[in-house]
């Protein structure tokens, strides 16, 4: 019983660090500034489109970067320019969203990475 509770507690801790199953913060330090409330999905033509939405919870105008890694049904990565880092900025205490369309009709899985901006 104790083991089960410990396992549940650990699972909750891990889930607590990850904003969404398909979204990951590269630097955990940004998790106090930005929240990810969810990821919408739809199919456009034959391509999957996702929209990540959340809020800049800090009291400052902030810049971030994101990239999306797409994979095919066999788990192989599909290289494309949508896997390059893209900048986005949000005003303080304001919601944000960014959408990305799959680079190929073969793309079925994805992982969104959110990171601090580069200092250049």
């Amino acid at each position: 019983m104790k083991k089960r509770l410990l396992g549940l507690g650990l699972a909750l801790l891990v889930l607590g660090c990850a904003p969404q199953p398909n979204v990951k913060f590269v630097e955990n330090s940004i998790s106090s500034d930005i929240s990810v409330e969810g990821v919408r999905e739809r199919t456009k033509g034959q391509l999957k489109e996702i929209e990540v939405y959340g809020e800049n919870e800090s009291g400052d105008y902030m810049s971030f970067r994101y990239r999306v890694v797409w994979k095919d049904k066999d788990g192989f990565e599909i290289k494309s320019m949508s896997s390059n880092w893209q900048n986005f900025s949000v005003f303080k205490k304001t919601p944000y969203q960014f959408s990305v369309i799959a680079p190929s009709i073969d793309a079925v899985e994805y992982m969104v990475y959110i990171n601090e901006p580069l200092d250049n």
């Binding site: 456009k44 033509g45 489109e49 320019m81 949508s82 390059n84 893209q86 959408s99 369309i101």
Partner: peptide, 23 residues
């Protein structure tokens, strides 16, 4: 060039201009 090209392809694919009826 990476940024501009990436945005152009994303915009083109998302616009539906390349959705041919018969797939």
């Amino acid at each position: 060039f990476n940024e501009a090209a990436g945005k152009m392809v994303q915009s083109m694919l998302a616009s539906g201009a390349l959705d041919k009826k018969d797939g």
